[in-house]
């Protein structure tokens, strides 16, 4: 009797799977290992040391870039999440209206448009504003990041809203809750895992961005990723590995938290 087709039983399955994982993770593992290198090389092991972490920690440029990154990511994720919640409500809690599908597509547009196109467009758009207003602060970066973070915040919020029992909100209205009160007392308390997950995802996406930041930033507005890019053009020391490892740790932490929060039910 023929056994049902199972992909895990096919010859070479394990070999291919292992090869994929090695390809994915070996470079990262090496990067992490060499961040602890005592020597100046990123490819020759000279013993264990935390000197590059200490050096990165004391580097004022890195400090400034880190703070800038966190400020931008915080601002962008707050704006993006607020917009995403409103968009999610409008696309799930209203009677079907003409153009609802189009709005859904438009909200997710940043996922489809090549990032470099968005970057160029923002560069041109913001330089027009710069000429007109003379403002050169961080808000350009925050708004640019907010724009491409919206779909990432939108997805988990919308998923959560769709999974919620509509009769709860009806019960709230039936029990004399005005729409605003129903949102505050019934929708929001159940929505917050989705909102938090969306905000964290947006934060990580913003923290990681290079392309759009590189185009939009003014002089002296390096974020951590663009600073690293700049460093690599000169001499590469394990300091880069140390920063990367720290960023990796933060990302893993946030994504793990995102995973657990979005799994929370009730």
């Amino acid at each position: 009797m023929a056994r049902p087709f199972e992909v895990t039983r096919q010859p070479g399955f394990s070999a291919i799977a292992i090869a994929c994982f090695v390809l994915l993770y070996l470079p990262i593992v090496l990067l992490v290992i060499y961040s602890f290198n005592a020597g100046e090389s990123i490819s020759q092991w000279e013993g264990f040391s935390l000197r590059w972490y200490a050096s990165a920690w004391e580097n004022e440029q890195i400090q400034a870039a880190t703070i800038r990154s966190v400020v931008i990511a915080t601002g962008a994720s707050l704006i993006a999440t607020s917009a995403a919640v409103l968009a999610a409500l409008a696309t799930t809690r209203t009677a079907p209206w003409r153009g609802r599908t189009i709005v859904f597509a438009l909200v997710n547009q940043p996922l489809m448009v090549p990032e470099i196109v968005t970057a160029v467009a923002l560069l041109i758009f913001f330089s027009m504003i710069k000429v007109a207003t003379g403002y050169t602060g961080l808000w350009y970066l925050i708004l640019a990041h907010a724009a491409f973070c919206i779909p990432f915040a939108y997805m988990p919020v919308r998923a959560r809203l769709q999974g919620m029992d509509l009769s709860l909100e009806q019960a709230g209205a039936d029990l004399y809750g005005t729409p605003v009160k129903v949102f505050r007392h019934i929708t929001l308390p159940q929505l917050w895992p989705g909102i938090l997950a969306g905000a964290m995802l947006a934060f990580v996406i913003s923290l990681d961005d290079v392309v759009i930041t590189e185009f939009v930033k003014s002089a002296g507005q390096d974020t951590l990723p663009t600073y690293m890019l700049g460093q690599i053009r000169r001499t590469i020391t394990p300091e880069i590995n140390a920063i990367s490892t720290a960023l990796l740790a933060v990302s893993i932490l946030l994504v793990t938290a995102f995973f657990f929060i979005s799994r929370t039910r009730k």
Binding site: D165, L168, A171, G172, D174, L175, Y176, G177, T178
Partner: peptide, 15 residues
């Protein structure tokens, strides 16, 4: 919310 009428839902819809 302006009707002096309350409903017991089939799914109960407890918060």
């Amino acid at each position: 919310y302006e009707r002096p009428v309350n409903t017991v839902f089939q799914s109960y819809a407890l918060f």
